[in-house]
């Protein structure tokens, strides 16, 4: 069984929970007391991940500590459907968005930790960097829409979408509104409408698109 060292409020951990749910991969969850216990910074945890970050994914002797690597691993295990098209341009674009997701975590993600769990730092800079990243994402997704596309790369959702989705969908938690980014909002709806989508605190399921209970 694949084991995920997990924290319920972490956007990066949710990335892996969401990917696993969409792929029907069962994970064993090990809750880590990230807040208030800071167990991810403990000596015991450093044995597992010297970087002291979450999530950590363990499958046999394989230990992964980067969430984008985990997305690749889970997607490879489950056939190639979620890796994006394999032509050179698309493959490079998927890599671009996997790296870009790191910028989202370093800006929107930090703004959220500041506003919610009292992390100290330059909140104005984090929000400004978050807006800069959202403008790039908005431009890219608008181009895709004009070309009739929905997803970041290719004609189907891929690990690129899953990598970028959590910190974008949670941006309001850090005081960054998505009001100015309509293509981004539509894209988050498309992801939330996927079969087997799972939610996390701050990211709600699409109640409004589901039939009312008495109709179902």
């Amino acid at each position: 069984m694949i084991r995920l060292y997990d924290y319920v409020l972490s956007a990066s951990c949710y990335k892996i929970r969401l990917m696993a749910a969409l792929l029907c991969v069962k994970l064993e969850h090990e809750a880590v007391d990230f807040h208030p216990g800071r167990a991810h910074k403990s000596a015991a945890f450093a044995q597992l991940n010297p970087a002291g970050t979450l999530p950590v994914l363990v499958d046999g002797d394989l230990i992964l500590t980067e969430s984008t690597a985990m997305l690749v691993y889970l997607a490879q295990l489950s056939g190639r459907d979620w890796l994006g098209p394999c032509d050179p341009k698309s493959a490079a674009q998927v890599q671009h968005w996997l790296a870009f997701s790191g910028r989202l975590a370093a800006s929107l993600g930090m703004a959220r930790l500041h506003d919610m769990l009292l992390y100290e730092g330059d909140i104005d800079a984090w929000r400004a960097q978050g807006h800069a990243a959202l403008r790039e994402l908005e431009a890219a997704l608008s181009e895709r829409r004009f070309a009739g596309g929905v997803w970041l790369v290719g004609d189907a959702p891929s690990i690129a979408d899953i990598a970028c989705f959590p910190n974008v969908a949670l941006s309001q938690d850090g005081g960054v509104s998505l009001d100015a980014y309509p293509s981004v909002r539509l894209w988050t709806r498309a992801i939330r409408a996927l079969d087997r989508f799972v939610e996390m605190p701050g990211i709600h399921r699409l109640h409004e698109l589901r039939p009312a209970p008495e109709v179902a």
Binding site: V8, L9, A31, D33, G37, P201, G202
Partner: peptide, 15 residues
């Protein structure tokens, strides 16, 4: 850690 995570999940749904 699971008790804490459960209660944080609930409260953050309210936030």
């Amino acid at each position: 850690a699971e008790l804490i995570a459960f209660q944080q999940m609930i409260f953050l749904q309210d936030r």
